[in-house]
């Protein structure tokens, strides 16, 4: 499935396509709250854990054999840069959860290195989110979250956890790394939900 964001496909992109308070960059800035975890593909594993503790896991070979999408999406960082038309390859969260039995309403994404972020489950479904492992036609670089990162382009990019290790399905909401330190629980760039008081 290809995802073409609004405005993509010939029309020149301009500031009207930017969420409030954002500026456009053509770079891909690296923001990081810590050292880059180095995860060998032979030891890499992705897990989905339900609220009852049931685990589904994929090795790298199993994960990259799943049906993949190639979304082209705009991304928006809470530090105010936005980047238009980024191209990715990854597995949709719908695919990862297709055979998972859950009553959960919330998800905590866990990263290698200890980072966490929380997202309502409905914000990850229906083609809104992927676990991406290629950027611009090349393997995702470690500084950008490789081997694989969450990609949730409709939320500020801190929700797109780098170095994804697990998706924990929960009945209750559990604020993550930045959400417990002053950032907004939801992080919708179009509503400019940057900080907890927004």
């Amino acid at each position: 499935m290809a995802v073409i964001t609004r405005g993509f496909g010939g029309r020149r992109r301009d500031d009207a396509d930017l969420p409030p308070g954002q500026y456009r960059t053509d770079d891909f800035p690296v923001l990081s709250a810590g050292p880059t975890p180095r995860i060998g593909l032979d030891e890499w594993e992705l897990a989905v854990v339900t609220e009852t503790g049931e685990r589904s896991t994929w090795s790298w070979a199993e994960f990259t054999a799943l049906p993949a999408d190639e979304p082209t999406v705009d991304i928006h960082c809470v530090t105010r840069w936005s980047k238009f038309g980024t191209s990715w390859r990854g597995v949709s969260v719908d695919t990862l959860l297709a055979d998972v039995d859950t009553a959960a309403e919330y998800v905590v994404a866990h990263s290698y290195g200890g980072y966490t972020t929380n997202i309502p489950l409905e914000g990850l479904l229906d083609g809104q989110a992927w676990v991406a492992y290629e950027f611009d036609g090349a393997p995702l670089a470690p500084v950008h979250g490789g081997p694989a990162r969450l990609l949730v382009p409709h939320l500020y990019f801190w929700k797109s956890a780098k170095w994804l290790r697990a998706l924990e399905l929960r009945l209750d909401d559990e604020p993550g790394f930045w959400e417990t330190a002053g950032y907004h629980n939801d992080g919708d760039p179009w509503r400019e939900q940057r900080y907890l008081e927004d």
Binding site: G34, P35, W158, Y183, E197
Partner: peptide, 28 residues
């Protein structure tokens, strides 16, 4: 201190755990 992030994140140089986070919001 990792300062190229949404906030300032101070980590222990020994075990790399986070010892302090400092975030400036609009008014706090």
């Amino acid at each position: 201190v990792f300062d190229r992030a949404p906030g300032l994140v101070a980590r222990c140089p020994g075990c790399e755990d986070v010892v302090m986070r400092l975030v400036r919001t609009a008014d706090r």
